[in-house]
Simulated scan of single mutants.
Amino acid sequence: MNGPPDIGALLEQARRNEEILRRTDQLEEFLLSPRALRPLLEGLCQRVAAIYGLDAVSLALADDHAGLRLALEADGPQALPAGCFHCARVELRMLVGDLERPLLSNRASDEALRFLFGQRGGLCSAAVLPLWSRGRWLGSLNLGSTSPERYHQGLETHFVRRLAAKTAHSLDAAVLYEQNRLFERREAAMEMAGAACHELAQPLTALALRLETLMRGLPEGDPLRGQMNSLTAEVDRVGELLRKISEVNRYVTKPYAQGLRIIDLRAASAAGKPSTPPEEA
């Protein structure tokens, strides 16, 4: 027969669970606060490490998630925040095997630890939490500890799954936020382009007709003809710019003076599908 339960051990386990729950609630306050993608990434790893007392935290981002990549490039190419890196699904699967459930281990290889955290750094145990939302793989949240007892096989709890689910939800919400922001920018760019074309087309047409009339009135060999031809060429150039503005269907920017960014007419009016926010991307 089994002996009576150890009341002290049960109370200690209850206390630990209560503390884990408190920390999880604290992290959820951060995760569930609406924010853009980059601010979320900039604070996530540091926040998780501080709340749970971890020695290393990293976030692997799926490199085949179109919506995630589009959101990351919303304000132009930028380096990923500290602790974040792009990861191919096949690479992570080779290290952890199953991407459907968290992996906890105190026997991770040096290769795996360097891949997940960039360095070995005395880490003895790690947890890899795959992030899934709406049936799409977003990446993984990776937790590292110098204690071999912190994470090991068979220790998985619902707290780990809860952390993965909340992180995935927050990441997916930030991606959708960025997609909607890009859509709104595109709509604003198209409205501005339409207004510019409407306001400029008539005076430009009148200017072209006036130049043509003046050219017909000049005798052959008149030195003013050369200047008039140059003016006509500039008017044609402005007309070509208006044509590009009228074809703007995407929000694409390029660097400008003093750190500003302006719409890249060539790229924004290039042939192709408009960058509407893909719901399933």
Rank of each mutant, 00 (worst) to 15 (best):
H86W: 09
Y52E: 07
E19L: 12
D75T: 09
G83H: 08
T24E: 07
A49E: 13
E18Q: 14
C87Y: 01
I20C: 01
R69I: 02
I20D: 08
C45V: 11
L54F: 07
L80K: 09
Q26R: 15
E19I: 02
Q78M: 02
L41N: 07
L27V: 10
T24R: 10
F85R: 12
R35Q: 15
H65W: 00
L59A: 05
L61Y: 01
A36G: 11
E42G: 09
C45N: 10
T24Y: 00
A82P: 04
S33A: 14
I51W: 07
R15E: 09
P81Y: 03
P77T: 06
A74G: 02
S58Q: 05
R22C: 03
D25K: 10
A66P: 15
G83D: 01
Y52N: 05
A79W: 01
R89M: 04
L40A: 07
R38I: 10
E28W: 09
R35P: 01
R47T: 15
A79F: 03
E18S: 15
L21A: 12
P39F: 03
I20E: 11
S33V: 08
D75F: 02
L31H: 13
S33N: 05
A82N: 09
L61C: 05
L54Y: 08
N17R: 13
Q13C: 07
V48G: 09
E42Q: 15
E29S: 08
L21G: 11
A50S: 13
I51F: 06
G76V: 06
P39C: 04
E28Y: 08
D25S: 11
L68M: 13
R15L: 10
V48A: 10
R16P: 01
A74N: 00
V57R: 04
L31R: 12
D75W: 01
A14D: 09
C45D: 05
L27F: 11
R69L: 11
A66T: 10
T24G: 07
A62E: 09
Q26A: 15
A49M: 09
L70C: 02
N17P: 04
G76P: 00
A56M: 06
C84M: 03
S33H: 12
L32H: 13
E29N: 10
P34E: 04
C45T: 14
R22Y: 09
P39V: 02
D55L: 06
R38A: 07
L44D: 06
L54T: 12
E42M: 12
V57M: 01
A82R: 15
G43R: 15
D75M: 05
N17S: 12
R16I: 04
G76F: 04
